[in-house]
Amino acid sequence: MAINSNNYFIDSTIIIGDYNNVINFNIGEIMIITTLEAVPGKQIEIHYGVVTGSTVRAKNAGRDFMAGLKNIFGGELKGYTQLLEESRQEAMRRMVEQAQKSGANAIVNVRLATSSVAAGAAEVFAYGTAVKVI
């Protein structure tokens, strides 16, 4: 899950070390994220409860036009896939920030969900349990 955006940490409210210069940054390097119930090889010390992150994104007009053409002829909508990938990273980043505020160093049992809230807008939701492992 490499984040390739240069402005990844500009709007971030938490400053974690000196990561502002890092361009290719991996969320997994600051926090262990896993879909398992525990982190393999480590013991759960403190349990902080559920952390969530979500974002609602709308498709832009340019993407919608191309998608409209693809809708007729079928096929993968790469613009939408990319859009939802970006919003998923945003949602996961918010989840990680929330976990860091509580002092956790791992999130276990992470789940993702997508739902369409209105025509042309989709919500991406990530949630998990923040824990401290040693």
């Binding site: 899950m1 393999p40 809708n71 002829f73 079928g74 096929g75 993968e76 909508l77 896939t81 939802l84």
Partner: peptide, 25 residues
């Protein structure tokens, strides 16, 4: 893998993939 011992794992990583597909008319 509750029954299996994963404690030998050196590293774990969250991986995901997605795809949006439209049906033709």
């Amino acid at each position: 893998f509750k029954t299996m011992d994963l404690s030998k794992a050196q590293r774990t990583e969250f991986v995901h993939g997605s795809c949006v597909i439209a049906a033709d008319r």
